[in-house]
Write a protein that binds this DNA or RNA. Structure first.
Ligand SMILES: [Zn+2]
Ligand SMILES: [Zn+2]
Ligand SMILES: [Zn+2]
Ligand SMILES: [Zn+2]
Lengths: 139, 139
DNA sequence: GAACCAATGTAATAATATAACAAGTCAAGA
DNA sequence: TCTTGACTTGTTATATTATTACATTGGTTC
């Protein structure tokens, strides 16, 4: 378990909402979910999201403008975050780092660009959706 | 030259605006730029952007909600698009495909996920900005 | 307690993107 | 030629995502 004991009230609420969610949630979806707990304004959510991203307890899926809890216990130790997003069901899986092996070092050397982080988003169709589509087609 | 002759009036305006821009432009920045040419509403821009992305003449930089003209003549032939984005000056470079070598095949095989496209965004600091910062620091 | 800093609350607004519908364009095909 | 249908366009309104600005609270340090 990552250290959650330093988190503030709003940060805990937000990270727990993301952990218990099926998939990525938008900031406003989180807000709606947390209204019963006293969260009233977008900014409360956005501030918590910012801090949680800094701590790498959550990630933003840029192409969806949505947020997910990190599934890797040591994600804060590496610079690469990747997701596989199903275009059919919008399901999102976080890719383990070893899957995302990038050969950018030569390019960085040549251009003098110093990497601080990488966001990778793989689009496609998940197994479940392909099977469903196949089943529909054959009737 | 890629075939631009099939493009509609609005599509041509948008792609030319992006080609002549220094860096990525937001949809609304494009709109302002094209007002003198008769473009009046966001949808005219968004519709053109959608079609141009489909044709892979332009790309969306997801993490900036901005759009750039493609610099690779054959970008429509491959599935990977990558950018290096400087956190300091917001400059964006499109990465050549051979730089972005991904080892996702095993993972895809195991999980049954079929890739249709990849968006990769490398964050960091460009050479120019690092040099400027170094120059400031040493005075 | 006073001074300080970080976190909070609240309202207003900015920036990005889409829905809904009316109207024009253009190329088959009767 | 006229009609049909697919596609593109124009326009208004609205939804969604994110930030600015400022007043307030709560604990820590001196
Ligand atoms: Zn992670
Ligand atoms: Zn799926
Ligand atoms: Zn390209
Ligand atoms: Zn730079």
């Amino acid at each position: 378990m990552v250290e959650t004991h330093k988190l503030t009230k709003n940060q805990k609420l937000v990270v727990e909402a993301l952990k218990s969610a099926e998939g990525p949630l938008s900031a406003y979806a989180i807000l709606e979910e947390l209204r019963p707990h006293g969260v009233k304004a977008p900014l409360q959510v956005y501030r918590a999201l910012d801090k949680l991203m800094e701590l790498k307890l959550i990630h933003k899926v840029e192409s969806m403008s949505a947020y997910v809890a990190c599934v890797q216990p040591d994600c804060h130790t590496h610079k690469t975050v990747g997701f596989a997003i199903c275009s059919s069901c919008n399901g999102v899986q976080e890719l383990p780092e070893n899957v995302v092996s990038l050969h950018l070092d030569n390019w960085a050397q040549e251009t003098g660009f110093v990497r601080s982080g990488i966001a990778l988003e793989v689009r496609g169709t998940c197994k479940t959706c392909r099977e469903n589509e196949a089943a529909e087609a054959c009737c």
